[in-house]
Amino acid sequence: MNKSLGNVITGLVTDINEKAYFIQKDGVTYKLPKTETMDYQLGDTVEGFAYVAMNKDTMLTQEIPAVRVGEFGWATVSETRKDLGVFMDIGLPDKEVVVSLDELPTLKHLWPKKGDRLLITIQVDEKDRMWGKQAPESVFESLSQKGDEGLNNKNITGTAYRLKLVGTYILTSDNYLGFVHPSERKDEPRLGEVVSGRVIGVRSDGILNVSLMPRAHEAISDDAGMLLAILERTPTGSFPYTDKSDANEIRERFGISKAQFKRALGNLMKQRKIVQQDGETRLVEATNEDQK
């Protein structure tokens, strides 16, 4: 087992060709491409990150990744393989590390997708394979700060790092730990998914209670969404119906009651998406264009 892999090491330049320097450490020779580094001479000492590339070359890079053996860092999901796990980009030009399916949720629809992120470290096995290992709870606790009541109703973004039956734990962009109860979300976030929500309370241990549901005035009902879609498809961004229109005409045109129609219009007007004027309902953007 090569104990240097996944670590920053210092070795000696023992050979040079047109494309690379060859660095030796503990009897192992590493290839350092000339494209990424300064000039070295035979006998110089060189520091870099040791790894095995996808083509099996033993490599050294001076672009040191944050994710190393014994060091945790954020890595981005680049690919998912249901038979293996998820491939993580840690910043190496020709190597990704895999977080094994053994570390991922049982339900595969909760696996991270491309672009999601995980806080991981590197573990090297007896066959010199580098694996990504997720950070334990203690690491998230060490990274976090305690919340206070001043955060109530604040908007937050965070990464889902623990999925449990009781709810989802997230680490916010400001390094607060948050908890999302199943009643405060529409769908369960994936592991590694970045979510947006708001603080609805602070626990005695400083963990934020977070809701991923929209505020009441932000929610758009199905009826409101339908009306908005119709307006957006019209050439003028308007239609000749308002909350004063005849109930039969509304039902014939939109398939909903006048009460539903009025509630939907009220919802959209509160969000300043529409206005009613001259017997019409118009998109705010369309009204602004007419005034230019």
Rank of each mutant, 00 (worst) to 15 (best):
F179G: 03
A160V: 06
P136V: 07
L208I: 00
I156S: 09
V202M: 00
A216L: 13
L104R: 09
M88A: 10
S100Q: 00
P93A: 09
V86Q: 06
I170M: 05
G91T: 01
L177C: 00
R198W: 11
Y161Q: 06
T157P: 05
K113M: 12
A216S: 03
K133T: 13
Y161C: 01
R129I: 14
T121M: 13
T106G: 15
D174Y: 11
E126T: 14
K127E: 15
G150C: 06
G147Q: 04
R198V: 04
A160S: 04
R215Y: 12
I156M: 10
E149A: 09
G206N: 02
R198Y: 04
A219S: 12
K133Y: 13
L101P: 01
V194Q: 13
F87L: 12
L208P: 00
H109L: 11
D187P: 04
L165H: 13
E184P: 08
G201W: 09
R117L: 07
D94F: 06
Q134V: 13
P214A: 01
D125N: 14
P105D: 07
S211N: 08
D128P: 14
G192P: 10
E79F: 08
T80N: 06
S142F: 04
P105R: 05
I170C: 06
N209T: 01
L118I: 08
P105V: 02
K133W: 11
R215P: 02
N152Q: 05
K113F: 05
G201M: 06
F87G: 05
K113W: 06
T80C: 07
Q123L: 08
D94E: 09
P136C: 04
G147L: 08
L104E: 05
F179D: 06
P112M: 03
